[in-house]
């Protein structure tokens, strides 16, 4: 094989189409290293200058947040490669299930809550660490928290598995209690809308959040206000 020959590009499989980005499963550098590719395609409706500016800004901002979080040992996917002019981020492939999927499966069983209490502690610790680093997720739902699991292992013994925060597309750096409280509120809504039993579980999340983040008290007080206000906007889904 001559050195100039390049391997054919790895096939990519579309796994999610959001409003802003397309998410693919592919590989990075070597065929056996799975990767997630997040691509923000150019939007035809936008002026090309504005489009390029927004794509570049959002790509860089998301990558920076991920890198900053990772350097502080907060569980997020590693960034492999960023091409901001094409709107592409290659990052670590997290195999496993989302917390939402785990809850759906576990809570359907009798006494299922007891099986996930360790997981709740980990979620609280991860979110606490994120907020301690002044990073606000912006869309902190149970679908955006993964439980790392081997390929095809199924949902077993997940209490011991690592919890990973994903999708920082709407994330920002903020020191404001309000923004952090809204993060928690969004997460609470995600929990309570999943299952009646999940409400108690969210309580466990908040407890470990409180223990792992010094500023938690102020944020939790703020969360009370946000809850009161939450009725202003009626959202579904």
């Amino acid at each position: 094989m001559s050195s100039t020959e390049i391997d054919p590009p790895t096939p990519k499989f579309l796994i999610k189409q959001g409003a802003e980005a397309l998410v693919y499963r592919t590989t990075y550098l070597l065929p056996h290293i799975p990767a997630l590719l997040k691509h923000r395609p150019s939007k035809q409706y936008r002026h090309p200058t504005l489009d390029a500016r927004l794509t570049k800004h959002r790509c860089l901002s998301e990558s920076r947040l991920l890198i900053r979080a990772r350097s502080l040992r907060i569980p997020v996917p590693a960034v492999y490669f960023v091409d901001e002019s094409r709107g592409e981020i290659f990052m670590e492939w997290i195999s496993g299930s989302s917390v939402r999927e785990v809850l759906d499966e576990v809570l359907a069983q009798e006494g299922g809550e007891a099986m996930v209490d360790r997981m709740m502690v980990k979620v609280g610790v991860a979110v606490g660490a994120l907020h301690a680093a002044d990073i606000v997720h912006g869309d902190l739902t149970t679908s955006n928290i993964m439980v790392r699991n081997g390929e095809g292992e199924g949902i077993v013994g997940f209490g011991e598995k690592e919890v990973v925060l994903v999708d920082f597309g709407l994330g920002t750096v903020s020191t404001q209690d309000e923004d952090k409280a809204v993060d928690l509120y969004v997460l609470e809504r995600a929990f309570t809308s999943t299952h009646p039993k999940a409400e108690k579980l969210f309580h466990d999340v908040l407890k470990s959040y409180e223990q792992s983040y010094k500023g938690a008290n102020v944020v939790l007080r703020r969360l009370q206000d946000v809850r009161m206000r939450g009725r202003k906007r009626s959202m579904i889904g």
């Binding site: 409003a19 802003e20 936008r46």
Partner: peptide, 11 residues
């Protein structure tokens, strides 16, 4: 562009 973006997100 902002209006179209938020509409697309809702869709």
């Amino acid at each position: 562009a902002m209006l179209v973006e938020i509409t697309e997100r809702a869709m």
